[in-house]
Amino acid sequence: MLEAFNFRVLFDYLPLFLRGLWATAWISAVSLVGALVVGIAACGGRLSRFPMLSRCAGAYIEAIRSTPLLAQIYFLYFGLPTLGFRLPEYQTGILALSLNSGAYMAEIIRAGVLSVSRGQIEAGLAFGLSYFQRMRYIVLPQALGITIPPLLGQAIVLVKDSALLSLISVFELTRAGQIITSERFMPAEGFFTTALLYLGVYYALKAFSSWWQKRLIYVQAI
């Protein structure tokens, strides 16, 4: 199998793969920021005292978690134009990824916020801190510690999920593999290289995650 592996072609297509990797990186980064915003908003809604808001946020989270990302991508890709929004493919893709990951992040953040014990918040209330002060100085610093590792795990999922955007003709890493397959009919060269580059991103994010966790334990020990 390996003797048939054509490294020359890889060399020819290297710039394409690097552009694909770069596209995957920035699309994931932008979607990650979007997902955090969506996640914090949805979590805030879920935990709010207004039943209407809480129920809406809950319905959104459950709907996203019970349906596949690919169906969500197609929903926006084919659905937005009928509503009169003609977005470029990559914007639709980033929107879909943010909305999808946001729901999972909302749950992660909620678990973090709920892990802060009731007594802490009551103590904050007793000191006469406002809602924002309680959040800023009591709840979030403690919640953040335990949410960062699962959030990084979700970031890894997000990078892998961004591969699905190639199906609505967004140019990124998987698309580069598809291009080499259709132009030269060399799927092995195309998709193994693609897989290898994804593995690189995966290990980098994992290393960052474990470094962060170690640092966190160290900080908590002080």
Partner: peptide, 13 residues
């Protein structure tokens, strides 16, 4: 390998 690569790429492989 399974955890580090997108499922779509695995399907293509």
């Amino acid at each position: 390998f399974m955890r580090g690569t997108p499922f779509l790429v695995q399907v293509f492989i």
